[in-house]
Design a protein around this nucleic acid. Structure first.
Lengths: 155, 155
DNA sequence: ATTTTATTTTGTAAATATTACAATTTGAAA
DNA sequence: TTTCAAATTGTAATATTTACAAAATAAAAT
């Protein structure tokens, strides 16, 4: 029960009720930094808590993201992914195996956009391609990115 | 009818069969740079071509993106958006009205990440927040939470 | 111009992800 | 301990996208 203090504290600090389900989901996201989908969170947690409802998973993820405790990633396009880390960083997704890798960089353009009059709440930097492991199995192939980008990428 | 030459040329160059539906969809995307959803493309084109099938829209968008003639945006999270422009650029999405605005910047991190051995095919820079127009309405207390996606401005 | 053939289009049905809703349960304040 | 707003649960509904097979068609071959 000591291990849960961290999540209880976060919930209380955000004025959210403390429930076992919320603690479980936060703990899962904290300890499984693979940017899981709601389905994966649900099916994994369901093993130890068979009464868990999928709606609870969705409700909880929604509540946590509204309080900026977690971050929603739209990188996949077919399902949302969830990230316990909310400080700005980029992601790379392998289109072969679906893995999502963290990339720690700071985006220099954030401030630039503020001057345009819009309010910026989120920043997402996504790269997609084929990861090193998948490349070794199938060969490197060709990079379909257009010209300007390839120049930048030769660095 | 001269206007279609551009799209016929692109299709032929990519070894794709030329069909009226494909021309219509490419023309629509080219002339409506609001990053529309499949549903919007379908319902708008359906007016002049009532026999158009939604499956054709999805099939065509899939084929066009496989040939890198168009780009798929995952920015929304609830639906895919399509962009006729395939050269790298960023996007800003207003969470109030759903508008997606182009932002022309080069990402300086692509090269850095390619050094790690992965193959990078796509780059997506997404910013999210509330656009200038919605902020002004919000200030006057006139912004209902549920708004229809309105037309997007371009930068 | 006609025939042929592989591809595309179309409509329906299915799959997948997410949300709505109402009844029950529960956390935490009184 | 009581109270009550909020959370959980299961089911149903919605939304987006994909699967599939029959009909139509673009483009190549004749």
């Amino acid at each position: 029960m000591e291990k849960y203090e961290k999540y209880i504290e976060i919930l209380k600090k955000n004025g959210m009720k403390v429930t076992p389900q919320r603690i479980d989901i936060m703990k899962y996201l904290d300890e499984h930094r693979i940017h899981p989908s709601a389905e994966k969170i649900y099916s994994d947690l369901k093993e130890d808590n068979p009464s868990l409802s999928k709606t609870t998973v969705y409700n909880t993820l929604e509540a946590l993201s509204e309080h900026h405790i977690i971050q929603i990633l739209t990188i996949s396009g077919s399902e949302l992914r969830y990230d316990f880390k909310t400080t700005p960083h980029h992601h790379f997704m392998c289109k072969k195996c679906g893995a999502i890798i963290d990339i720690d960089v700071d985006c220099p353009y954030l401030g630039k956009f503020m001057g345009m009059g819009h309010r910026i709440d989120e920043m997402h930097g996504y790269f997609k391609g084929v990861c090193k492991d998948c490349l070794e199995k199938e060969g490197r192939g060709e990079n379909p990115l257009k010209t300007e980008m390839n120049i930048v990428s030769e660095v």
